[in-house]
């Protein structure tokens, strides 16, 4: 574990140096949130109206939290690095290092979001307070549980994105598959809560990673309940175990068929 701690610490220090660069990404986050504030202001025509059981404030905070998880974790970078290493052949140098390649990437990813996520959380809190108002019924005492769900959610997301990147062992470019996964997460979990979809589809969506990656953590922030928290944590642990197992399996099979070009 010590070697991973060293990797984590070095990535953390590196990211602290580039905090200003991370802040440059605030512009796009603000644009997304601004659009959704305007969109939901248009959709909610009467004060106190409920859509899929959410008030206007809850709906906007939901989107702000899901976008915060995606922007604050930037799982695309870890996926891109894995795909790039495999495509370029750099994996041949990394595969025999004294660490597991996928765990090394996940550790780097953790070091990155350790700086990014708090920055985006602070930005979201400021934008939310100024443009929307406080989260209705927010429970400060439950922040630790919300934080745990957010961390598990973004780790599950990275594990699944890594699984997709590892397909590059077989096909040259797995990026198009990443697009589809990202779009599924975006449309079904980020923009809308699961409750907004037809009732027949909701149980199906709850079985997908969407439930654990963004819906669960964001739902807890806008509408916390102890039972829901336990349900989401249990689902996340199951997903993490299954996703982790799948990641190790794909990596082992892929590494076996690795073809190294000379030169």
């Amino acid at each position: 574990m010590r070697k991973y701690a060293v990797v984590y610490r070095s990535v953390l220090m590196e990211n602290i140096q580039y905090a200003a660069n991370i802040a440059m990404g605030f512009f796009n986050y603000f644009v997304f949130i601004f659009i959704f504030i305007k969109l939901w202001e248009y959709m909610y025509r009467t004060p106190g109206e409920l859509i899929a059981g959410y008030t206007k404030e809850q709906m906007i905070w939901y989107v702000m939290m899901t976008e915060m998880i995606l922007f604050g974790s930037n799982a695309g970078s870890v996926a891109g690095e894995a795909a790039g290493d495999i495509r370029s052949g750099n994996i041949a140098y990394l595969i025999n290092k004294p660490y597991h390649y996928t765990l090394y990437l996940l550790t780097k990813y953790t070091g990155e979001w350790s700086i990014r996520l708090p920055m985006y959380a602070a930005l979201a809190a400021v934008i939310g307070r100024v443009m929307v108002g406080p989260v209705p019924g927010f429970r400060l005492t439950a922040v630790w549980a919300m934080a745990l769900c957010v961390i598990l959610g973004l780790t599950i997301n990275a594990v699944f994105k890594l699984c997709i990147s590892l397909i590059s062992f077989w096909i040259e470019d797995a990026t198009p598959f990443q697009w589809l996964y990202d779009k599924l997460i975006l449309v079904v979990g980020v923009i809308f809560p699961v409750e907004i979809f037809p009732k027949t589809l909701q149980p199906l969506f709850k079985l997908t990673p969407i439930y654990t990656v963004c819906y669960g953590p964001a739902k807890l922030i806008v509408d916390f309940s102890r039972e829901k928290c336990l349900e989401i944590l249990a689902a996340q642990l199951l997903y993490l175990a299954a996703g982790g197992g799948l990641m190790f399996l794909i990596y082992r099979k892929g590494a076996k068929k690795l073809y190294v070009n000379g030169g």
């Binding site: 969109l39 959709m43 096909i171 040259e172 470019d173 990026t175 198009p176 598959f177 697009w179 589809l180 779009k183 599924l184 975006l186 449309v187 079904v188 923009i191 809308f192 907004i196 979809f197």
Partner: peptide
């Protein structure tokens, strides 16, 4: 690489089409 080329083009069409679901919902 024709497979990569066609996959990129085809999946981008699908990727864009997926967002229409948002508008059906709204």
């Amino acid at each position: 690489n024709k497979v990569t080329f066609l996959t990129s083009v085809g999946f981008m069409v699908l990727n864009n089409a997926a967002i229409l679901a948002q508008w059906f919902i709204l």
